[in-house]
């Protein structure tokens, strides 16, 4: 019995690794990044588009704009495809077919992001350049590539949310004479709404955090985008592109870029958590 208690204590210490890791990450990223934000001035750092590290100019507004543009674009594409897939797989596909297609979606999640970026750059980018104009490396290209990349995340959470809707809701709706599709739009999607919203937010978190694929297809230009065909640089690309040779203030400014990204992601994750918790609360009442 005493030995069991000792083992329990050891397991507890090990179990605290994840939260300790998170704390360490937060402390080290902020310690490296926050001082330069204060020195440059938060207003200057976040609201200026002037990024010229050799002159000591650190403004990341164009990267914030770039990240937001590709994330929103990816969310639009990801949501349309993921919801379609989730609805088809749970409501309309024969169970055997659905069971066969799910591993394929998981495989889509397993493909390395450099491969997505590469295939995007050699197929999608020239296609956009020739058919729509502009450099091809663009918000549009990044949105499409990211949209595909976040599709497995959104789809699998949306499937869970749809399957969590009580069967009686669906049966009640069908019994009232609604078609399967009317049931989907009027009952199922409404009942699963918070789960789907959480899925979309988490998908956006993945899109804004993605690095390698975006570097390859977004063009990395240092300016706020004015159209879908403009090239942009995201927060993540800025870090990955310049960390290799940065030192001193420049390196700290890249950590500060990381701090910005970290804060945005934390806000998104907290929102997703709040949405799904509200769902849990409501279900307990109902």
């Amino acid at each position: 019995m005493k030995r069991d208690r000792l083992i329990g204590a050891i397991l507890l210490v090990v179990a605290l690794s994840a939260i300790s890791g998170l704390a360490l990450i937060t402390v080290f990223i902020f310690r490296e990044g926050v001082p330069i934000i204060l020195r440059v001035g938060a207003g200057q750092f976040f609201l200026s588009t002037d990024w010229e590290p050799s002159l000591g100019h650190f403004g990341i507004l164009s990267m914030i704009g770039g990240s937001l543009a590709v994330t929103v674009g990816a969310a639009v594409i990801g949501v349309v495809f993921s919801l379609g897939l989730a609805i088809v797989l749970t409501q309309f596909a024969p169970p055997a077919l659905a069971a066969a297609l799910k591993p394929a979606i998981e495989l889509l999640a397993g493909i390395p992001s450099v491969v997505y970026g590469f295939v995007g750059v050699v197929t999608l980018v020239p296609l956009i350049r020739h058919s729509l104009g502009g450099p091809g490396l663009s918000v549009l290209a990044a949105s499409i590539v990211l949209g595909i990349m976040i599709l497995p995340t959104i789809t699998s959470i949306a499937i869970d949310a749809l399957q969590a809707v009580p069967r009686s809701y669906v049966e009640g709706s069908i019994a009232l004479g609604a078609t399967r599709w009317q049931t989907v739009t009027m009952v199922l999607l409404r009942a699963a709404r918070s789960g789907i919203v959480a899925a979309v937010i988490l998908g956006m978190g993945r899109a804004i955090g993605e690095t390698m694929a975006v570097i390859m297809v977004a063009g990395n230009a240092l300016a706020l985008p004015h159209s879908l065909l403009d090239p942009v640089r995201t927060l993540t690309s800025n870090i990955a592109l310049e960390m290799g040779y940065a030192s001193g203030d420049h390196r700290q400014a890249l950590f500060a870029t990381g701090v910005t990204l970290f804060v945005i992601i934390t806000l998104l994750n907290t929102a997703a958590l709040a949405v799904s918790r509200r769902r849990a609360g409501r279900r307990r009442v109902g």
């Binding site: 939260i19 690095t211 870090i239 950590f255 992601i265 998104l268 994750n269």
Partner: peptide, 25 residues
């Protein structure tokens, strides 16, 4: 709840942030 919160948040951290952290730590 704290342990799960830690794991959930860690799962949401982008890989480039892990890279920055690994580099400095």
């Amino acid at each position: 709840a704290v342990i799960r919160f830690g794991a959930d948040c860690l799962a949401g951290v982008p890989s480039i942030i892990f890279g920055l952290f690994g580099f400095v730590f």
